[in-house]
Simulated assay, not measured.
Amino acid sequence: MNMNNQPEIISYRDLELLREEAIYKEMEESKLHRYWLTIKRQWPIFVMLIPVLVFFLLFRYRPILELIVGFKSYDANVTNNAFESPWIGFYALKELMFGTREYTVLFWRAFRNTFTISMYGLLFGFPIPIILALLFSEIKSDGFRSITQILTYLPKFISTVVITSLLFLMLRPGQADANIQPGIINGMLVWLGVVQPEVNMLGNPAYFRTIFILSDIWEGAGYGSIVYFAAIMAISPTSYEAAKIDGANKLDQIRYVTFPGMAPTLTIMLILRIGNILSVGYEKIILMTENEVHWVLDTADVLSTFILRLGNVYGSNAGLSVPPDLIRAFSTSADLFNSFIAMFLVLGANFISRRVSDTSLF
């Protein structure tokens, strides 16, 4: 009401705004009500979700706070609180990437080895599980297919220590004076004239990457084929029957039916594999190079092993002048650099996939 006790005139635009505001408010209230009803009806599922949320909070998100060590001069022998340590900013990261000391050379060597091993692993290791899944799908006998699948899955469930021990036994060099016979693979390569009997392949930088990648393929190809085999089994048999009627042979069926049917799975798995392109496991490399000479690390040292050795082998035995209060800053900065590169690779691969196809991770 105005001063003359006359009713206020509300424009049509104001009425529309009031109506929209009332509708949005009602929608929000109904949405919250639907959420509450969903939680009330399915409360056992949400209760089961609590341990998962607690796990991620404690072991995935809480450690993010410790990244501050990469920007602090922190020595655990002096103080237990990293937040009270002196702030050094990006000094450790700049020293690792653009410094003039020996650990800068070792950092870029580790980065180069990590990228090289991962790219070769992606190039040769990614198609093998797909080929295995295609071969499994063509086996008509369920019993024989189950046996072959179990045999290919088995190396994945063997300890890394056992896998490495098997590699040492199979690649053992022969010693005529000590009457030591070469390992089965080493003996085969000697018989083919590829290597000399006394050559230690695990101690030779020229062979390390090949051995590591082939052992990784042998260990994980069968287990990795499970996802692709499930995608192939989900394709409707009528699509293959229609292709047969049109005169398609087996290769045409794989090209025009199988691959398009499993394309979403292939895209998602490729994006995830690209995200792990700089995550080469350190366990096997540490075990394979534990008793070898230091120069094997020219092709074997990766970022994860560099971070582990930074305060031990590199900091003491190799004569590198890394101050004790900067070791953790250097290792954290190297790992943080690795994580940022992996994140940008995932974002880039997902963006390209979303632009060229209808499938993306997010």
Results as ranks from 00 to 15, higher is better:
Val199Arg: 06
His294Cys: 02
Glu283Arg: 10
Asp75Gln: 11
Gly222Thr: 10
Ser360Lys: 09
Gly174Ala: 07
Met97Glu: 00
Asp14Thr: 10
Phe115Tyr: 11
Trp295Thr: 09
Ser11Pro: 11
Leu169Met: 06
Ile327Ala: 06
Leu122Arg: 07
Ile9Asp: 02
Asp358Val: 10
Leu272Ser: 01
Thr258Val: 07
Gly99Arg: 01
Thr267Phe: 00
Asp301Trp: 06
Met48Lys: 10
Ser118Leu: 05
Tyr153Asp: 11
Leu336His: 03
Phe362Val: 14
Trp36Met: 13
His33Glu: 15
Phe90Asp: 00
Phe259Lys: 00
Val195Asp: 01
Phe90Lys: 02
Ser215Gln: 09
Ile352Phe: 12
Leu192Arg: 06
Gln149Arg: 14
Ile9His: 12
Ala248Lys: 12
Ile131Leu: 15
Gln196Ala: 08
Asn80Ala: 11
Asp298Ile: 13
Ser85Ala: 14
Met201Ile: 05
Ala300Gly: 05
Ala133Thr: 12
Met233Asn: 10
Asp301Gln: 14
Ser141Thr: 03
Ile226Arg: 01
Pro323Val: 06
Ile39Phe: 15
Ile226Ser: 08
Ser215Glu: 12
Gln196Lys: 12
Val54Met: 13
Ile10Ser: 04
Gly89Trp: 11
Glu21Arg: 15
Ala110Met: 09
Trp87Tyr: 15
Gln149Ala: 09
Ile147Ala: 03
Thr299Gln: 10
Gln181Phe: 02
His33Ile: 00
Thr210Met: 15
Leu15His: 12
Phe157Thr: 07
His294Arg: 11
Thr148Pro: 02
Asn80Gly: 15
Leu320Gln: 06
Gly121Lys: 04
Ala176Trp: 07
Phe83Asn: 03
Tyr314Glu: 01
Val296Gln: 01
Val161Tyr: 08
Glu21Ala: 15
Gly315Val: 07
Pro264His: 07
Leu166Ser: 02
Phe90Cys: 04
Ser165Leu: 12
Phe83Cys: 08
Phe330Val: 02
Met1Gln: 09
